[in-house]
Design a protein around this nucleic acid. Sequence first.
DNA 1: CTGTTTCTGGACATGCTGTCTATGATCTCC
DNA 2: GGAGATCATAGACAGCATGTCCAGAAACAG
Lengths: 201, 201
Amino acid sequence: MTVVEDRRSRRTRGALRDALVSLVLERGYAAVTVEDIVAAADVGRATFYTHFRDKEALYDHVVSSVLEELEERLAEVLAPEDAGFTGQPVAEVFRHASERPDAYRMILRGEGDGRGLRAFEDAWSATAHETFTARVKANAVRPRVDLQVLARAWVGEQMAVLLWWLDAPEPRPATDQVVETLVELSRRGRFWATGFDPDSR
Amino acid sequence: MTVVEDRRSRRTRGALRDALVSLVLERGYAAVTVEDIVAAADVGRATFYTHFRDKEALYDHVVSSVLEELEERLAEVLAPEDAGFTGQPVAEVFRHASERPDAYRMILRGEGDGRGLRAFEDAWSATAHETFTARVKANAVRPRVDLQVLARAWVGEQMAVLLWWLDAPEPRPATDQVVETLVELSRRGRFWATGFDPDSR
DNA sequence: CTGTTTCTGGACATGCTGTCTATGATCTCC
DNA sequence: GGAGATCATAGACAGCATGTCCAGAAACAG
């Protein structure tokens, strides 16, 4: 019944997910065929199509599973109405990424025509936008730039660094250290980061 | 002779380039076939293969043509040894993008398995890295973060904003205004941008 | 053991790919 | 305006991945 179909089905789907991710990282999304996937997952080709309509469907399945996990995490971290920016959401993303590095690598590299990357950007920048809006509200000030643009810029910066970090050779800088750097970049601005502030001399 | 082959050849290649870009923007890289391209460019299918080995080759051709143009521009702007960061390189990228918006859209959206996007990132962040290094040197200071990371973050931020800007509905904010915002974001940091600096109260 | 569900190999039509060849179109130069 | 070069074209071809289908094998619950 449902118990059986769930257990067996889950195992198969999981194998297909893992096979897709590792194959895509190995040779790129376009170069991976359904045959490759089922061979790596050790299932029959016909089986693939009983679970997913096509390669894209499997890809979307991977992306949304990652996204759902991340959203749960962020919801927990953002729960306290501490609207101030503490770097906790950023740290959470990095932590999650370090738990599923391959899936993150695949998504952030823009594999699969970048659909996953865009979904990711949207979700993440929505959170960022909320944070910024809350901070502006809490302090009753008027923002000097479009908060949407600000959120996009902020997310773009972090995705770039996250991808760099995932691909960095071991020993990789600790999560907290990278996050701290990012937060300081945001806080102090980039001029400060180079050790030179043209305004303060 | 060479004159003939150049004129006719150029027209054909140009038509193919334009066809690829507009079709990719319309329905996505993977969904565009060589047949579609030659139909849109109004050339025979066989002709395609006398110019490009396959769809990827045409795509790469588009990307590198854009990249070469951009690099020329940046070289001009960076010529004076004003190593200080003035926003001129950023402005130049935005100006170039507004002249070839569709090609930029295609690349920045990560179409074509993101190969173009990565090439773009690399070129751009190399320039950024040079700028930062020069500034550090000119002021004989020690950077507080890895300049490579800084460059990546900076480029990620700008690519995200550039893409947003290209897709923004008309009337689009003026180039100079967006660039100014980006420069101020870098200069002052993001906290300032929201009108609230936790350090200065 | 029985019945249900999932997995499987193999066969099939389809569509796109990249190559080739013979022919047609276009232009230069004389 | 004709000769010669270069590019464009249609059509045919094999190769390969796709997505669908079916009949039977395997795994499991009760």
